[in-house]
């Protein structure tokens, strides 16, 4: 993906945004259903690695749609309704790592993985901060509750899940790229 095409949304992006969103929705729903163990506030939410990885592999728009629409699908499958502010936050969590999706020669190169890890942390921080702050006018909570009650647990959980699973997905994707020649 060259610099000019970072914000391109052609046929390939249409398909991968749809696949990413469906994967994120299905993983979110099924891993909740299986009832994975959790440690304290850090829930095992492996699904959050999907929008981050799709951002890195296919660009910011695909990352955003994967996060936004995938969260909508997960909530719809679970019957939780529509949480637009958290859908937006999940979208940002996929968009920000997508900003590096230009000129990646190898997805398993150490430099690429480190860059992706940094953007995963920034993405999780900003992505979870936006809906946490939106809860201030919506729910009437104060800044301290927004940070301690919403942002911190979701940021920690998403960051740890993303930091571990995104590199694993990148290394696996590198083999797919070599095979398909894309």
């Amino acid at each position: 993906m060259d610099k000019k095409s970072l914000w391109k949304f052609g046929t390939r992006e249409v398909v991968y945004a749809a696949i990413g969103a469906a994967l994120y929705g299905v993983f979110s729903f099924l891993t909740n259903w299986i009832g994975l163990p959790a440690a304290g506030n850090i829930a095992l939410r492996p699904a959050v690695a999907i929008p981050m990885f799709f951002g890195v592999a296919f660009g910011p728009i695909v990352g955003f749609i994967t996060g936004f629409l995938g969260n909508v699908l997960g909530d719809f499958l679970s019957g939780y309704g529509f949480w637009w502010s958290w859908d937006l936050g999940n979208g940002l969590m996929g968009l920000i790592p997508g900003l590096m999706a230009v000129g990646i020669a190898s997805y398993k190169a150490k430099a690429t993985i480190i860059k992706a890890e940094i953007l995963v942390v920034i993405g999780a921080a900003i992505g979870m901060l936006v809906p946490s702050l939106l809860e201030i006018p919506l729910s009437g909570i104060d800044l301290r509750t927004a940070i301690v009650g919403y942002w911190l647990p979701s940021f920690l959980s998403n960051t740890i899940n993303g930091l571990i699973l995104v590199p694993i997905l990148m290394v696996a994707y590198d083999a797919v790229v070599s095979r398909s020649g894309r």
């Binding site: 992006e13 249409v14 398909v15 945004a17 749809a18 696949i19 969103a21 469906a22 929705g25 299905v26 749609i65 629409l69 995938g70 699908l73 499958l77």
Partner: peptide
């Protein structure tokens, strides 16, 4: 893309 996502689920 949204329409496809619902179909892929």
């Amino acid at each position: 893309s949204m329409d496809l996502a619902f179909r892929f689920v």
